[in-house]
Amino acid sequence: MLSIEELRKLAGLARIQMPDGELEELRGQLEEIIGFVGEVQKADTSSVGEVDLPAQRNVFREDGEPHETGKYTKDIVANFSDSEKGYLRVKKILEK
């Protein structure tokens, strides 16, 4: 049911470069897993209304009391793969 092309597309959406040799093995495993988890479709969920699903609420605090600028910058930047003047440096996104 899952083609290699579909699988490649899924991996692409997840930004994962799959070694070609592994795609076939993964396809078999995913088919098995998807068939197994598909059991949920047998459950009668007609009694579960939309309202039973979690309600949304605002969990964020109001802005205020900022810490001093740069307090954590050094530690955080130290984890970056590349940086410049306290900023994360990445490759050019828009190409000519």
Binding site: L7, A11, L13, Q17, L26, K91, I93
Partner: peptide, 26 residues
């Protein structure tokens, strides 16, 4: 940049992690 992501995740994640991420994406 896209290739950075693809390669980092492809090489950085183990088999089970890749399997679950792709299953989740599905």
């Amino acid at each position: 940049l896209l290739d950075d992501y693809m390669k980092t995740k492809g090489e950085g994640y183990g088999k089970e992690v890749r399997r679950r991420i792709i299953l989740g994406t599905y």
